[in-house]
Design a binder for these strands. Structure first.
Length: 679
RNA sequence: UGCCUGGUGGUCUAAUGGUAGGACAUCGGUUUUUGAUAUCGGUAAUCAAGGUUCGAAUCCUUGCCGGGCAACCA
């Protein structure tokens, strides 16, 4: 355990090395630099936790700096939302900074650059300059304006600032190297003309500095020791350093940029542009829609700051790109809510239950523990009466002995109440069960201490007294996309993968009266169902709950298996377990090298996989559908095996279809071929 | 076709030349007035081929695969 916490991520190691090399600890300073053009999401949380975590670890200041150099996209609304989210996550910044505070200094430095012959004003169109820029494999050509006199450049730049020119007509560029293998070094843009009011500087400026000309200098001005950003900025580092070379005083702290991989979450998208598209297309109700991976969406959904911080911690920081499975996020929130959520009862899909031997009109106030995980968390009262609602799926007229719930002639415990036995049902003309009649062991009341109350019965159900039930709307959420990585396809738009069933509204659920007093940030566990929190749209007399996440449900997992057992292929399941396991493993081993093979060897491998697939159960194969896209070999092997299973009569399901579809879209020909073969 | 960068179980991550470990997921046992929680156990990985070394996930070479780079965005 102790060893785990000792293990440093590579950024922390860099800091340690710098300290060891003589950097005074007092000079450590970090920053989190969002652009206020959208809401923060769970990916930003990684960066926030990294930077502020570093601050906590070394007792160093962390600035919040808004990178606000593009007034066409940025708004005060986003500034406010970002600040709120960071505070909600539980972090405090040392200084609230804005790149726009440095506009004058940046301008002055630009003048110096021009004077030293290292920047010039270009008058060409964007298209012309793009063409001159060359390509990654061929060098660019120099602009005809590149060698203008310093005087002319100075004059033009000052007139740009004075508003004499229209947007797009003039631009300030650094003079570096049009043949550099790094495209960013091919005379990058420093300033462009934008005639739009800025959320902080108003109309003071009509020229705005570009990111590269701003970021490093802002770090320098704030004496940031470690400027941490995501991997796509790696190639900007050369420019970052070049600019600092031009302006930095060697006696002052020189910031250094380091990059880590951005965090992706499965079944969602994580770019502000795409999230904005979901908002603007009304696919979701807003940035804080509970299905959104935004901090505000997660908050509304019922996630806690602790769970998000924990998720960031266990996800880690590295340089390899990855897609973290949502199940890890769900684990983090369940872990927190299990410890802290108040236990209550609510019925989402009700059926009427009548206890025939319980007196009509009688009401008992029973005692319910608020939270068994917390000592002294107190209790609250739950009214009990003759007529109750229970969950439809908690009753079956007749069932096998694996069904721990209510069926005719069987007993179950009503949570915090009595043990009951189902006797009969009343059905409507269509054959639907509309009432369940049962009898109750009147000595068995929970906590009464009687012998009957101590009896062990296999199942326990949640319930609500009809007479006392409070109506509530329940909103249940599923993944927003049905593809694991909806934005990973070059030829398909991520919007094609939107899950049409991501929101399910239960208009009329019934909850216990205790919940009438629920407040906005309260966290509840609806026992046996999941974790719920009040939605901000709830009003007095109109309860609305968001389902944060369900409880783990090993019973639900058994269901599909039980159905499979009826099919002939399945009974070997147990006996051949060992054999099957090695078969699937063997397939994985062969597959891994698959793309390295050719000719006869390839053919042999394919045949072997197909042969081994005969021994494999579908349940073993399905997890491998999640194999990362880059592990093509494994995916090919799985595709071959899947083909064998389908031939044997395996029914197609959504997961299978999605896997085949992904295969068809892949760039690897072998994989496409296999996918086509079974399409 | 250039430059940069990365490849450890299904997923995420440790091991920094010396026992491939942890978490999630998954499977199974125990406990349980939540089929939850808790608890115990199982399955499962170093992209490949060569080389250096007593010893390689780690160093070298070659190859394979993934990501980034040609916005008046950040």
């Amino acid at each position: 355990m102790a060893k785990d916490s000792e293990s440093l991520n590579f950024i922390e190691q860099i800091v340690e090395q710098d300290l060891a090399a003589g950097l005074p600890k007092e000079q450590l300073r970090f920053r989190f630099p969002p652009e206020p053009n959208g809401y923060l999401h769970i990916g930003h949380a990684a960066s926030i936790c990294l930077n502020f975590g570093l601050g906590e670890r070394y007792n160093a200041p962390v600035n919040l700096r808004f990178d606000d150099t593009n007034p066409t996209k940025e708004e005060q609304e986003y500034v406010d939302a970002i600040k709120h989210d960071i505070e909600w996550l539980g972090f405090q910044w040392a200084t609230e900074c804005y790149s726009s505070d440095y506009f004058q200094q940046l301008y002055d430095w630009a003048i110096e650059l021009i004077k030293s012959g290292k920047a010039y004003v270009d008058k060409q169109s964007a298209e012309a300059m793009a063409e001159q820029k060359g390509t990654p494999t061929s060098p660019g050509v120099e602009s005809p304006h590149r060698n203008q006199s310093v005087e002319e450049n100075l004059d033009l730049f000052q007139r740009m600032k004075a508003g004499e020119f229209e947007p797009g007509t003039h631009i300030l560029r650094a003079k570096i190297d049009m043949a550099s293998p790094n495209m960013l070094m091919r005379d990058p843009l420093l300033y462009r003309i934008v005639k739009k009011a800025h959320h902080r500087t108003g109309n003071d400026w009509c020229i705005y500095p570009m990111y590269d000309w701003t970021h490093g200098q802002s770090d320098y001005l704030e004496s940031i020791s470690h400027s941490i950003c995501t991997l796509e900025f790696k190639s900007h580092r050369e420019l970052y350093d070049w600019f600092l070379d031009q302006i930095a005083d060697p006696d002052r702290l020189r910031p250094k940029q380091r990059e880590f991989a951005r965090r992706n979450l499965s079944y969602t998208v994580m770019s502000k542009r795409k999230l904005l598209e979901l908002v603007q297309s009304k696919t979701v109700s807003g940035w804080d829609d509970p299905r959104m991976p935004t901090i505000s969406g997660l908050r509304r959904r019922g996630y806690t700051p602790e769970s998000i911080r924990k998720f960031s911690e266990v996800s880690g920081i590295t340089k390899r790109d990855s897609v973290t499975d949502v199940s890890l996020l769900e684990f983090c929130i369940r872990e927190d809510l299990n410890k802290n959520a108040t236990r209550v009862m609510g019925v989402l899909d009700p059926v009427k239950l009548i206890i025939t031997n319980y007196p009509e009109g009688k009401v008992e106030m029973l005692t319910a523990e608020n939270n068994p995980e917390i000592e002294n968390s107190g209790t609250h009262e739950v009214p009990f009466s003759r007529e109750l609602y229970i969950e439809k799926e908690d009753f079956k007229e007749s069932a096998g002995n694996k069904f721990f719930r209510l069926s005719i002639g069987k007993e179950v415990r009503l949570k915090n109440a009595y043990i009951i036995k189902a006797e009969s049902v009343v059905k409507d003309n269509a054959g639907n069960i509309i009432e369940i009649h049962c009898t109750c062991d009147l000595d068995s009341r929970s906590g009464s201490g009687t012998e009957s109350s101590e009896r062990k019965v296999k199942g326990t159900l949640h319930w609500v007294s009809i007479q006392h039930a409070v109506k509530a709307e329940i909103r249940e959420y599923d993944r927003l996309f049905f593809d694991e990585a909806p934005d990973s396809y070059s030829d398909r738009n991520f919007m094609e993968f939107v899950n049409p069933e991501s929101l399910k509204i239960v208009e009329t659920a019934f909850v216990e009266p205790f919940l009438q007093e629920a407040k906005l940030d309260d966290k509840f566990q609806f026992q046996r169902l999941g974790y719920f929190t009040l939605d901000k749209e709830a009003q007095a007399g109109q309860l609305i709950f968001n389902k944060t996440v369900g409880l783990k449900d090993s019973w639900a997992k058994q269901q599909p298996q039980a159905e499979q057992q009826k099919q002939p292929a399945a009974q070997q399941n147990q006996s051949q377990h060992q054999g099957q396991r090695s078969a699937i493993n063997e397939i994985q081993k062969i597959s891994k090298k698959y793309t390295n093979l050719s000719g006869d060897k390839l053919e042999t491998a394919r045949t072997n996989i197909a042969k081994l697939a005969e021994e494999v159960a579908y349940e073993e194969l399905e997890p491998l559908f999640n194999t990362a896209a880059k592990k093509v070999g494994t995916r090919i092997g799985v595709m071959i095996a899947l083909g064998v299973l389908l031939k044997k009569g395996q029914e197609r399901n959504a997961a299978i279809e999605a896997f085949i579809e992904a295969g068809l879209q892949d760039s690897n020909e072998l994989l496409v071929e296999e996918a086509k073969g079974i399409e």
